[in-house]
């Protein structure tokens, strides 16, 4: 059992990641899909950060009397990834707003139904 306790953090990550994945592929609502992507994203961040941790290590800011530092490289990668993540989330939300303007709904199946109905030539802007 002791051999597995060191892997617990990865399992948490996998569970979170799969929840995000499930939200993305099963939900029809576009905003909820974006939230699911965020959940997925954060789980990947946690994965990176947990790989960088060293037992007994300290935050990677040089100071006297500290010998072990956690690995700073994942921190750098994730730091930039978070900010880029929010920028792309904003882009996704903007797309959602445009879709709402064009189709009047943000449910994926309704949009698909609208696209596949031949009588409905151009979707009206309902907003």
């Amino acid at each position: 059992m002791d051999a597995f306790s060191g892997l617990f953090n990865y399992w948490i990550v996998v569970v979170l990641m799969m929840m995000g994945f499930y939200i993305v592929i099963s939900q029809q609502n576009l905003i909820k899909k974006i939230v699911g992507l965020n959940v997925f994203q954060v789980s990947v961040f946690v994965f990176y950060i947990s790989m960088g941790k060293i037992k007994g290590g300290s935050a990677p800011i040089l100071a006297d009397g500290i010998e072990i530092y956690s690995n700073p490289l994942p921190h750098v990668l994730i730091l930039t990834a978070i900010v880029v993540g929010v920028a792309t989330t904003a882009l996704g939300l903007a797309l959602t707003v445009r879709i709402k303007n064009a189709y009047g709904t943000i449910e994926e199946d309704e949009i698909e139904a609208m696209e596949n109905t031949p009588s409905n030539k151009t979707p009206e802007a309902t907003s």
Binding site: V35, N38, F45, K53, S70, P74, L79, I82, T89
Partner: peptide
């Protein structure tokens, strides 16, 4: 908890602040 203070800083400001407002 995992020693990534810079990252935690960013996540708290971005995730809990800005992206909630945008959503």
């Amino acid at each position: 908890v995992m020693d990534a203070v810079d990252v935690a800083f960013t996540e708290a400001a971005v995730g809990a602040g800005i992206s909630t407002v945008l959503m």
